[in-house]
Amino acid sequence: MNGTLTIFRREFAAYFNSPIAYIFIIAFLVLNGGLFMTSFFLQAAADLRAFFGNLPFFLIFFIPAVSMRLWAEDKRLGTFELLMTLPIRAGDVMLGKYLAALAFYLVALAGTLPLPIMVAALGNPDVGAMWSGYLGAALLGALYLAVGTFTSGLMRDQISAVILGIMACFVVFIVGVAGVAATIDGWLPGVGSFLQQYVGLSGHYDMMLRGVISLADMTYFMGMTAIFLILNTLWLEGRKY
């Protein structure tokens, strides 16, 4: 656990040691805020539906850009060999890195808090739905990050890592879309709806967006995240052979 903490601190500091962190956060806030504001005044409804609704698609691009450096950068610098010969289990090193990226994402997400404050000032929003929306956004980011961390390990350079990450996140997103599931069902009966329910995230995320926090949806997000983190650990262990 101490090892995880040491890795976490170094990785989290690494985000803020370069200007990239600030550019990321500003881009995240400006794009998200901008997208939200355009629809907010048109809709004239005091809620954050539009903001949370944009996130699954927006994060497909944002999250892999956050996670791309996690392993790929260490491979480039040669520090991967250092990390894998420290007396820390590979899984703990991975967890430290993952949690650092997650903390970075949560910092960026926390930057959007003026939005609910503004909405609350302008109208009378459903506070519960906003809370569950934020919880959903955090879980959504956690899942994409697990995917992105895993794909970062498979690649030697950051550009390939980010492209593979975007594709993987896109797949997790798109199989949950009803139309896509129906199309897949048309080719392979049952497969599309299976993927939609157990792999795709839209259905689970939409429930949270509406203010419903169910055990099934929580299990989905945490389970999928765990699966990708375990895959990452298995890759780290298997890489030796």
Partner: peptide, 9 residues
């Protein structure tokens, strides 16, 4: 290691 493992930042 041969490739000196350093965090340049």
């Amino acid at each position: 290691p041969e490739n000196v493992p350093l965090y340049l930042d």
